[in-house]
Simulated assay, not measured.
Amino acid sequence: MAAMDWTNVAVASITVAGTLGGGIVTQVFAIRSKRIDAKAQRDNRAEELRELARKESTDEKRSVYASLNTAAHSCRTAIRHHLDEKCGGRPADLAKFEAAREALRDSYSRAQMVVSDRALDFASEVNRCLDIGHRAALEIDENDSVAVAALYHYVDVSLGSAVRLLRRAIREDLGIAPDADTDLDGRLAELRLVRHAFVGRTPAAIEQAAQPGGEVVSS
């Protein structure tokens, strides 16, 4: 009888231990599962934040590039209009002329903080070219036909080419591949040569630097 009691106690103990052990194991697995889920959620959130940061960076770059492209085009147009007014004997709108240059300065300053080094090489050169055109238009003697002709050539051909080159460099930096026959680096070097030639105010040198085809970059 006593042996039977001890057997019952042993069986009961094993049953209780098994029940408690099973509960503990279940609880351990539940805690582990929650930790895994929590980590997965943190990882997903971190990836979402990284993706959001990448998107915001891309959106900002596109915004900066759009502003820079517009400002460069507007500055070149303002230089041309100012030259037309000055040489045409009409009152020049100096405030509008300066505003266009100031807008380019602001866009270029912003671009320096976000664009790639390669794109910045093009933006920097185009900015220099436009700055020279701006100063030349301010200082031009409208009675000096040679200087006027040289400046018109520089504005119409060289600055027009500069703006188009900047647009192509921007497109490349945004992942839009240029045409197979487009040598952006070579055209950047040509544009720099034209700028140096114009600073010397030698029309013949400008014409030679702009060859072949009479301009640095075709449209």
Rank of each mutant, 00 (worst) to 15 (best):
T19S: 11
G21R: 02
G21I: 00
G22S: 06
G23N: 06
I24M: 10
S33M: 08
R35T: 05
I36A: 11
A38T: 11
A38I: 06
K39M: 09
R42A: 12
D43P: 02
D43S: 09
N44C: 07
N44H: 10
R45K: 13
R50V: 10
E51M: 10
L52A: 12
D59Y: 07
K61V: 07
K61S: 03
S63C: 06
S63G: 14
L68V: 13
C75D: 07
R76E: 11
A78T: 02
H82R: 04
H82K: 07
H82Y: 14
L83H: 12
D84P: 00
E85S: 13
K86D: 05
K86A: 14
K86C: 05
K86S: 07
C87M: 03
G89T: 06
A92E: 08
A92C: 13
A95K: 02
F97P: 03
R101I: 01
E102V: 08
A103T: 12
L104S: 03
L104A: 04
R105D: 13
Y108P: 00
Y108K: 00
Y108D: 03
S109F: 14
S109N: 14
A111Y: 01
A111D: 01
V114H: 15
S116N: 05
A119F: 12
A119T: 13
L120A: 04
S124R: 11
S124L: 08
E125N: 09
E125R: 14
V126Y: 05
N127I: 00
N127L: 01
C129D: 07
L130S: 02
L130P: 02
G133P: 02
H134A: 02
R135T: 10
A136F: 12
